[in-house]
Write a protein that binds this DNA or RNA. Structure first.
Lengths: 343, 343
DNA sequence: GTTAGCACTCTTCAGTTCAGAGTGCTAACT
DNA sequence: AGTTAGCACTCTGAACTGAAGAGTGCTAAC
């Protein structure tokens, strides 16, 4: 689409975008003709810029400022102009070094991942916690707290732990709970969490369950445990965007922080990239959120085995250094996938 | 100390503080003489204010602005002038209604608590996660992940779950792990986590352990599990402070967000209130952190049974509505303690 | 001890001016 | 036909100004 740009126009557009990425300021014709070796006069550049504006790639804040690339320009840049570098050997090692796997729980690892994403990109790092439904069951355990409160612990094959306080209809002893766990662990072995529910419902119909109260209880409890497991998102490096000049304004900052404090919207945004593999890029208005008007999101799903379980990424201004950030996101997703690998 | 203020001076100081809490602006003599029924002329008020400034209770930003209460003034206000109201019946119900205990894990409950604190106070809510060392052991469980990676799950009597990925020296089967859990659960029953370590070390000396490799392994793993469990802090409602006029400045906001992104300092600040019961208040410079110059912290510890396990609180500007916030913090801490109650 | 009066200081805000940056257009050049 | 120099025009941002307003401190009188 729209690829009927002359070679020269493309070069100039690219130069403008790169200047803008560097400075966050409208770029003028003079600067382009001087800084890049075009051997064209500002006047000529201006003509081209006027054309590019016509086509919707550039916009001018006002008459006598330079021009700013539009979302459309960035999309074109990312799709057609950008040569994504492979990740730096150096950065690769940096990421690996920052990870310390052992002695941490999964939540901490995810938070750490988010932190690493933010510190390498200098933007915000986000990691959505694994959606439990896509993982495979490994273990369930009930522990008696006081009264009828029972702590249910659910573990996925890849080591993700979910625990919940559930309430049993009647007073159950510790031995009952152990029996129940054993029964369920046996019953549900190897199923995906998504399948669990229907399996449990089917089992409830079974004759042997109907006459064994304990089993019925076990199934009821497991149902409670599975009910609605929201995804959470770890956002780190929010301060980084305060360094971006385009947000150096109290009102805008408020809006952004408010957006990310309420994580619901972000979750649904990230969810969109769960399906397909590889790095996704959403530029400005492509996020369908007015608050994200000047922000881009670069995401990649991470997997456990061959199942996508979650998404991670970087959020920054639309004028972010895509060539630099894309490989970081990509590599980090691969690395995280490796950690959730079920050999 | 410094209590040799005349009754009138106190009244005036109180009026100034309350005005300042309300408006965040320097308050002038005229305003005081008018708004509060002092039947004193501005000139008289001015004389008193000059004295109060002399004594270090007031400061003037410049010649012709009004005056601002100092940290010392707020301290005096909180200690001597403030009549802490009991919590509103209405608010009490509001808090209770917002809590939904079942179907959540402890982490979510704490985050929720922090959210509630922030939404009721309109400042920032903070909740430090329980320090595991002060809780009582209930259960340990090992689950085999891939290879030598083992997921260790540790549960305290009050239902706090901690999980970690640990590495075993050799390849252990699932049955081994079950035996190990059973052995440890029996061995460590009823001990406080703090006592666990020495108990384990003592057990390692025991003859029967020396000749049973499995037991030795179990102890080693449990040691790994116990090693360094950092406290985390949930901070919610950071956006709320953006509404405070004294921070409506990009540089200050950056500083504040940076302070709270790095949670270490905050943890050590909160730790100071773990020892003694009841509500603690730290005003401005009392926090010994330059970034907290204009902020106050109101905290209260929460318990499990009769042991303090963590701290929660509210962070806001020094000119916060102490009379309103103190009962909120107090009541929330009690409520959270009740949830961790081991009947 | 209290207060009215008044000179003085300092901030804030609305205008105003001015330099600088960048554009768009026209006419000339290759 | 594409490229370029020249120039008038527009808009912003920074610096300066003056006036209004708020508040103080001091003095002298009540």
């Amino acid at each position: 689409m729209m690829d009927n740009l002359s070679e020269r126009s493309k070069k100039i557009l690219e130069a403008i975008i790169e200047d803008y990425i560097g400075t966050a300021e409208p770029v003028g014709s003079r600067a382009i003709s001087r800084r890049h070796g075009f051997s064209l006069s500002p006047a000529t550049i201006r003509n081209v810029m006027a054309d590019l504006e016509e086509l919707g790639f550039l916009a001018s804040p006002h008459t006598s400022a330079g021009r700013i690339p539009t979302d459309k320009a960035f999309r074109f840049y990312v799709d057609s102009l950008l040569a994504v570098r492979a990740i730096d050997r150096e950065q690769e090692e940096l990421i690996q070094k920052q990870y310390r796997l052992y002695g941490k729980d999964v939540g901490e690892i995810l938070k750490e991942t988010s932190r690493i994403l933010s510190s390498l990109s200098h933007y915000m790092g986000v990691v959505a916690t694994p959606r439990f439904t896509t993982t495979i069951f490994r273990h369930i355990e009930f522990i008696k707290l006081g009264g009828r409160r029972i702590l249910a612990i659910l573990v996925s094959k890849s080591g993700i732990v979910q625990n919940k306080i559930v309430e049993s209809g009647e007073d159950l002893g510790s031995e009952d709970l152990v029996r129940m766990s054993n029964y369920l662990n046996d019953l549900l072995k190897g199923l995906s969490i998504a399948e669990l529910r229907s399996r449990i419902l089917r089992e409830m119909e079974d004759e042997k369950v109907r006459y064994d109260e304990m089993l019925a209880n076990a199934l009821k409890l497991s149902e409670q445990t599975l009910g609605e497991n929201g995804t959470d998102v770890f956002i780190e490096g929010q301060v980084n965007i305060l360094d971006q000049p385009e947000f150096a304004d109290v009102a805008k900052m408020k809006e952004i922080f408010r957006t990310f404090e309420e994580k619901g919207q972000l979750v649904s945004l990230l969810d969109r990239c769960m399906e397909s593999e590889g790095v996704h890029i959403f530029i400005g208005s492509e996020n369908y959120m007015s608050q994200m008007a000047n922000m881009s999101v670069i995401t990649a799903p991470y997997m456990s085995g061959n199942r996508t379980v979650g998404v991670l990424g970087v959020i920054g201004p639309t004028r972010m250094g895509y060539d630099r950030v894309i490989p970081i996101v990509d590599y980090t997703a691969r690395l995280l996938s490796k950690m959730f690998d079920v050999d």
